[in-house]
Design a protein around this nucleic acid. Structure first.
Lengths: 166, 166
DNA sequence: CTTGACTCTGTAGTATGGTCCGGGGTCGAT
DNA sequence: ATCGACCCCGGACCATACTACAGAGTCAAG
C-alpha cells in the first residue's frame, strides 16, 4: 500500500480517474448505481477507490446495450447475508443467458462482416446488404404470413366486430 | 414462391410482422434507416418483404448497444458500384474490431457471472461485487495515481496559473 | 485573509429514440 | 353509400441519460 499522497478521493479526482464527468458521477449516485459515499464535515463526498472500477464497469456495460437499471441489477448480483443463494443464482443465470445471446448475435454479425471484407477482393456484386445475413442463419420461422399470434382470431363474446381488413 | 394472398405490404402488416410499432417504422424511415418505400396513388406506403429482416436487424442491433446512426452505417456496408472496395473494407474492419471488443467484454462478464453462480453453492462471502471482476483481468494500468494525462502539468507560457488544488 | 480551484444542491436544458394524438383521406365488405 | 379498419402527416409529448447553469459554501496556497 502506502497510497502516496493520493489523499481522500473527492468527486473531481474520481471523475478524472474514471474518465467520467463530475455531473455524471453525481447523477449515477442519485440513480443508485453508486453506494452513497461518506461525507466530510462540510459535505464533500469521499469515495473509496473501488468506485472507479464501478464507474468503468458502468461505462462498458452501457456500450453493450445495458440500461442503467439493468446495470444496477448486474451490480447488485452478489452473495451476501441478505440475499438467498438461490435467488442470486437464478438472477445470475438469467443474465448469463442474456449475455450468451448477445454474444451469439455479435458473432454472427462479425462473421457476416468478415465475409463482406473477403468477397470484397473478388468480383463485386455480393448480397445487397450482407450484414442482414447475420440474422438469417436459416429462416426456419415458417410463420411468414397468415396469423401472427394476435387479435382477429377466435373473437369470443365480442359485440360484433366487422372483421379486420387486413 | 406463390406469395399466397399476402397482398402489398402496408405499414400495418410490416409492423405486425416485425413486431415493431407503426409509428416506429415511420420514425425509422424518417431517420433514413429504411429506404423510402414506394407509394400507391393515394399515398399508402408499399414495402418489400426485405424490410422486415431489416427491422429485426435494427431491433437486435439496438439491444447490442448500437445507436441508430451506427446501425445506419452497418446497413450501408455493402459493395456496390458507388462505393470503393477499399472504403467498404476499411469501414467493415473497424466495425469488426468494435464487435470483437464487445464480444470480449461480454465473455468476461459471462465468466464472472458463472463464477458467481458456482461459488454460490459453497461458503458465502465471495467478492463484494463479483461482476466487477469482469473488467479487471489484471490491473496493468499502473496509472493509478498521480498525473492523469491532462492539465496542471508543464504549464508553458500561461499568464500565471495559481496551481490546481488537486 | 484573499483568491481561485473545487465542492454542494437544485433546477433547467439537450439529445436520442420513440410514442401518442388530431384531423383528415382511403379501402372494401355490407 | 356507409361504416369501420387502415393509412397519411405534423406536431406534441415522453423516458432515458446526461449536461449545464446558478448561487453559495469550502479549502489551501500566497
Amino acid at each position: 500500500m502506502s497510497g502516496s499522497k493520493t489523499g481522500p478521493l473527492t468527486i473531481g479526482k474520481v471523475a478524472r480517474r474514471s474518465g467520467i464527468g463530475i455531473e455524471t458521477v453525481r447523477f449515477y449516485e442519485r440513480q443508485g448505481l453508486l453506494t452513497k459515499p461518506d461525507r466530510t464535515a462540510s459535505g464533500y463526498r469521499q469515495f473509496n477507490e473501488d468506485v472507479i472500477a464501478r464507474l468503468q464497469f458502468i461505462q462498458r456495460a452501457k456500450e453493450l446495450g445495458f440500461t442503467l437499471n439493468q446495470i444496477k441489477e448486474l451490480l447488485s448480483l452478489r452473495v451476501d447475508p441478505d440475499t438467498s443463494c438461490n435467488n442470486v443464482k437464478a438472477r445470475a443465470e438469467a443474465k448469463i443467458e442474456d449475455i450468451a445471446d448477445k454474444i451469439r448475435t455479435l458473432q454472427r454479425m462479425k462473421k457476416a462482416l468478415i465475409r463482406l471484407t473477403q468477397q470484397c477482393g473478388k468480383r463485386g456484386g455480393g448480397s445487397e446488404c450482407p450484414i442482414l445475413d447475420a440474422l438469417d442463419r436459416r429462416r426456419h420461422n415458417s410463420r411468414t404470413e397468415g396469423e401472427h399470434r394476435d387479435d382477429n382470431c377466435h373473437n369470443s363474446g365480442m359485440p360484433k366486430m366487422r372483421k379486420k381488413r387486413n
